[in-house]
Simulated scan of single mutants.
Amino acid sequence: MGILNLTPDSFSDGGKFNSEKSALKHAEKLLHDGAEIIDIGPQSTRPNAEFLTSKEEIERIGSIISRMKKEFPQALISLDTFYAETVKFGFNEGIDMINDISGGQYDREMFDTAAATGLPYILMHVNPSYETMHDKIKFEDITLEVNRYFSKKTNELLEKGVKDIILDPGFGFGKTVEDQMKMIGETEYLGFKRFPLLIGVSRKSFIYKPLGKSPLDINEETQKLHLKVLEQGARILRVHDVAETAITIRDFLRKK
């Protein structure tokens, strides 16, 4: 899954792809480098990011989804939003999956909307409100906590009629460095092997801050983590550096 941020304030590529022309050009590069899914993000969720309404998200997306579907029909398009209204817009434009960082907690209509679309839904573990999204919580057992959350939320989704669920343990959201490294080591226990697991560690601060590096200088460390989670059953990697990750995946598959 290649990341396409339409935001002017994302922490590692802010402002690069927030025009339609540059977004389409970057999508083409991501696909050329080996991405199978393009994850479109109209709103940054980094700490202290600008908060947008659904209306503002929709305005920012414009006709990018429909143009991408026309120009790159082979690509699967994921829409990164926590708003049901943005999902409805994206569904009408042709998205293939919903990537909701809020687990349905920031918009009460999200689960019903996901069910109505029939699209695959990515469920992420996160703190319960937008305001507390990045508050660091030291959990007694992070793996147990994430699995409790997944159990509760997947039951809700299944009851609503959402059939295709993908789990994201939420690296970079309200977790200590220690807990995130523990999740890397215990990836095989996340999600009960019942649903596909998505891992998004690309350019996350729990990797680069302890090393005293920038988000753009940790590709080697990131690929080592990608290999670790692939070996434990991760099925989707959400990344900025698609070409490098494609090599990691090829090497992993060759060794299997």
Score class of each variant (00 low, 15 high):
Asp168Ala: 09
Ala114Asn: 08
Leu211Arg: 02
Ile142His: 07
Glu145Asn: 05
Gln43Cys: 15
Val146Pro: 04
Glu231Trp: 01
Phe11His: 13
Asp33Met: 00
Ala75Ile: 05
Tyr149Ala: 04
Thr81Phe: 06
Lys224Ile: 14
Leu6Arg: 09
Leu158Val: 08
Phe17Ser: 00
Leu123Glu: 06
His125Arg: 10
Glu93Arg: 13
Ala243Cys: 03
Leu227Gly: 08
Lys256Ala: 03
Lys138Arg: 12
Asp241Phe: 12
Phe72Ile: 00
His240Leu: 13
Glu131Thr: 13
Lys228Phe: 11
Arg235Glu: 15
Leu76His: 04
Asp13Val: 11
Asp107Pro: 12
Glu50Ala: 11
Asn219Pro: 01
Met1Pro: 15
Asp141Arg: 10
Leu123Arg: 05
Tyr106Lys: 02
Glu159Ile: 03
Arg108Pro: 00
Gly118Cys: 08
Ser151Ala: 14
Glu20Gln: 06
Lys29Ala: 01
Pro196Gln: 07
Lys138Gln: 08
Gly94Lys: 12
Phe51Asn: 08
Asp9Tyr: 06
Val162Ser: 03
Lys69Tyr: 00
Glu50Asp: 07
Ala49Gly: 13
Ser214Glu: 10
Gly170His: 07
Asp96Glu: 02
Ile77Ala: 04
Pro169Arg: 07
Arg108Ala: 11
Gly191Glu: 06
Lys209Ile: 11
Val177Phe: 13
Asp100Lys: 13
Tyr208Gln: 01
Asn219Tyr: 10
Ile64Gly: 01
Glu50Val: 14
Arg108Gln: 11
Leu211Asn: 03
Asp13His: 06
Thr176Gly: 09
Arg235Cys: 09
Leu30Ile: 03
Tyr83Ser: 12
Glu244Leu: 14
Phe111Lys: 08
Phe195Thr: 10
Lys160Trp: 00
Arg238Lys: 12
Leu76Lys: 14
Ile40Gly: 02
Ile249Phe: 09
Glu57Ala: 09
Thr7Tyr: 01
Tyr106Trp: 15
Val229Pro: 07
Glu188Cys: 09
Thr143Met: 03
Leu76Glu: 07
Glu220Gly: 03
Lys152Met: 07
Ser102Glu: 09
Tyr208Arg: 01
Phe72Tyr: 15
Lys88Trp: 02
Lys152Arg: 14
Tyr189Lys: 15
Val239Lys: 01
Glu156Ala: 09
Leu157Met: 09
Pro73Met: 00
His32Glu: 09
Leu230Asn: 06
Lys153Arg: 15
Lys55Ala: 14
Glu28Leu: 02
Lys16Asn: 14
Tyr130Arg: 15
Glu156Thr: 13
Arg254Met: 06
